[in-house]
Amino acid sequence: MRNVGAVIRRRNEEAAGALIGYLPVGFPTLDESVEAAVALVENGVDVLELGLPYSDPVMDGTVIQAATVQALANGFRLAHGFEAVRRVTERVDAPVLVMTYWNPVVQYGVDRFADDLAAAGGAGLITPDLIPDEAGDWLAASERTGLDRVFLAAPSSTDARIRQAVEASRGFVYAVSTMGITGARTDVDQAARGLVGRLREAGAEASCVGLGISTAEQVAEVLEYAEGAIVGSALVKALADGGIEAAGALAAELARGTARK
């Protein structure tokens, strides 16, 4: 199995850190989402985050919502998520995490979901609306299958909750850069720097910062203090506006931000 933690460690040894790129499965079509994901990796994305479109994505801003609504209207099914993971991992070596809201996993069956994700070559799950407090089934299933589990930490998280996120997570901890939802911002909040410091004090091996990152300069800024930078909405917007080529070009541009200064 591809190891997210190992890739992030390697990128922090050979460069400033890791670039993590998000795209939703099935947007604009299943085939194009697979091609676009491959293009991201070929252009310097180190870890892929494939999102499963969901009817009620409370952590997502307008760009990602618009894309996932279209994917659902085009007939996205959970089975397409596993298919996309399989097809992408057959083509590129980057580890592939799946980002999903919790209800689809519950309905599919937590154990069955873990088994099918592992069988497809997936590295693990990012769960934006599942906190460790409610994650008993998933902690057990990920232990059994060896899948990574990425929980979120927020600037408002207490020290106890920071420790809980660090202990429950494997792969990395997703540091929410600012209080908000997904979507490109001009300034990535300074709160991220403080949060990553707290995560490190709590023993986190890798913290990756997401929400609001859209330029190579922001990637470079984040990698001064974090192990990885996560870019979502900007890539989705590039894909929506300019197709696979534009998404690949943006990935290449963002990857400049991982160069060691």
């Binding site: 906190i131 407090d133 409610e134 979120l152 927020a154 909750r161 209080m179 908000g180």
Partner: peptide
């Protein structure tokens, strides 16, 4: 029941 929410909301719910 429970609290199936983003971590960002937990402090407010607490």
């Amino acid at each position: 029941g429970g609290r199936f929410v983003p971590e960002s909301l937990v402090a407010a719910l607490d």
